[in-house]
């Protein structure tokens, strides 16, 4: 376990040396908080931009607090996912491409620990940024609209977080058999987009799909009952996360590193 901690500490140190601990949370916050703010100030924004004919009256329906927070949540599934892929696509592939992985893995390093230390450190960075930004968004929604119960907020936070976790894990999986971070990013995004599109266009066939977790997590903040498919969907996601992680280790062991 000592060796795992050594690997893990190195990852954490690297993330602070290249300022990931600053810019990832900041970007997440901008993405998340933008939504309730623009929704709330939309009439003023339109007003100040002008360009409307004299006397035109636009009635903007005032969104509910739940809708405002759900808008934040949906941002995590577009820009948030993109950032997650960007910061994890080179975590192993980059080290293999540069050659430093060759130097490290001729030491008696456990492949499983190498992969899981990378995974764990990415998870911590992303869950931390995600929590911070989503929490702030929840707070702004509370101030500008009305407060949603914290328990509902937490439930939606965890359910959507499972989907983000799956994304991190899949990106790490591709990291283990591709040497180019660009290719890892491209294929990961491709797969996420296809999975999301299929799941949202064929929801009756893929109701257990992990890509629907974010849609399901809306239920908590919109005040409706979570759908019955939530649990199978969570189970499928957790199984996929576990399998991807195991596959990453198994593949990485068999790779030629040079």
């Amino acid at each position: 376990m000592n060796q795992w901690m050594t690997l893990f500490k190195k990852e954490m140190l690297e993330m602070s040396r290249n300022f990931k601990w600053i810019w990832v949370p900041l970007t997440f916050i901008m993405i998340a908080v933008k939504e309730p703010l623009t929704l709330y100030y939309m009439p003023q924004i339109i007003d100040s931009l002008g360009g409307l004919p004299e006397g035109a009256v636009i009635e903007l329906p005032v969104p509910s607090a739940g809708e405002a927070l759900a808008a934040s949540l949906s941002q995590f599934n577009t820009f948030g996912v993109l950032i997650i892929v960007l910061i994890t696509m080179g975590t192993i592939a980059g080290e293999r491409k540069s050659g430093v992985a060759g130097l490290i893995l001729v030491k008696p390093v456990s492949y499983a620990w190498f992969v899981t230390a990378k995974w764990a450190s990415s998870m911590i960075l992303i869950w931390f940024s995600y929590f911070l930004s989503y929490f702030l968004s929840w707070y702004y929604v509370g101030v500008l609209f009305e407060f949603i119960s914290f328990a509902d907020f937490l439930q939606s936070f965890f359910v959507n977080g499972i989907w983000l976790t799956l994304i991190v894990t899949v990106v790490i999986l591709f990291n283990t058999f591709m040497k180019s971070p660009g290719a890892v990013g491209f294929i990961s995004i491709g797969i996420i987009v296809i999975l999301s599109l299929l799941s949202s266009s064929l929801p009756h066939l893929l109701e257990w799909s992990p890509a629907l977790l974010s849609a399901y997590s809306n239920a908590f903040i919109m005040g409706s009952n979570p759908p019955d498919e939530l649990l199978p969907s969570i189970i499928v996601s957790v199984v996929m996360i576990t399998l991807s992680l195991l596959a990453s280790i198994a593949i990485f062991k068999r790779r030629e590193l040079a």
């Binding site: 430093v100 060759g102 130097l103 001729v106 008696p108 040079a258």
Partner: peptide, 19 residues
């Protein structure tokens, strides 16, 4: 045991963590 304990290796163009 793991044979990697017994060896040390320097590649032709060593790359390190620059940071």
């Amino acid at each position: 045991a793991d044979f990697r304990r017994l060896i040390g290796y320097l590649p032709q163009f060593p790359v390190f963590y620059e940071w």
